[in-house]
């Protein structure tokens, strides 16, 4: 039997989506080992999510980087886009602008889900930085802090703010995380972090939208300084 059927992922994939935005600091200070470890971590994240037959069709990953704010890859399931982008370090740390861009693309994607009758879970925002906001507008930063808190309070977003290294501005990260303390990565354990993240994504993708999913708190000790 001829089985060449065209599938449009957005329309024809019935699996409820877990939108995940990785908002990653790729400023000049990340040059060297940090950016290499980050790339390795993102790659293993992609591999592990892909290997899970449900998460592959459920998790939609979007990567926004700053240095200059840039959408490296827009929301796609890994079935459609299995290859991670290669991130390069340069520029300053316009965190507010980056968060704004992340939430804007997220809103667009959510609208697409609604227009096409696609169910989705509470979206995730992973915000990673190794320094202080720099080179952006402080007003935009304040606006985004308020926007994020509001979304978190109304259960429309889950945020994971993560500090990298000693110079990370944990105070600003704290502002983005009204409900729990921001976590600090142990050394450069990006890979461990992303392994934990992919497991969490898999867990969510096996539940149904609206169900309460508890995070694997025990697993945090594998990568976070607590």
């Amino acid at each position: 039997m001829d089985r060449i059927i065209e599938f449009d992922d957005l329309l024809d994939n019935p699996t409820p989506r877990v939108p995940v935005v990785l908002c990653l600091d790729c400023s000049g200070s990340m040059t060297g080992a940090p950016i290499e470890e980050l790339n390795r971590g993102v790659k293993s994240f992609y591999e592990e999510v892909y290997a899970d037959e449900i998460a592959r069709y459920s998790a939609e990953i979007c990567i926004v980087t700053f240095g200059p704010v840039q959408v490296e890859t827009d929301f796609q399931t890994l079935d459609v886009q299995p290859n991670p982008p290669i991130l390069r370090a340069s520029g300053l740390t316009p965190m507010g602008e980056a968060v704004k861009k992340s939430l804007d693309v997220l809103e667009e994607r959510k609208k697409k889900y609604r227009d096409n009758g696609v169910d989705y879970y509470q979206p995730w925002l992973v915000l990673m930085t190794d320094g202080y906001p720099e080179g952006g507008s402080s007003q935009i930063l304040d606006e985004q802090v308020a926007r994020v808190s509001q979304m978190v309070q109304s259960r429309k977003l889950t945020v994971f703010p993560i500090g990298i290294g000693e110079r990370a501005d944990m105070a600003t990260l704290q502002r983005f995380s009204p409900n729990r303390l921001p976590l600090k990565l142990q050394g450069l354990k990006f890979k461990e972090f992303f392994a934990w993240l992919s497991k969490s994504v898999s867990r969510v993708s096996q539940s149904t939208p609206g169900d309460k999913v508890t995070l694997d708190v025990a697993g945090l000790s594998g990568w976070a300084e607590i």
Binding site: K110, Y113, G117, D119
Partner: peptide, 20 residues
């Protein structure tokens, strides 16, 4: 329903309210 429309929940509707 989800077997006949492979994987599609009966209450996934355009307009974006939650299944429940």
């Amino acid at each position: 329903f989800m077997i006949m429309l492979p994987g599609k929940p009966p209450y996934s509707a355009v307009g974006g309210e939650s299944p429940s």
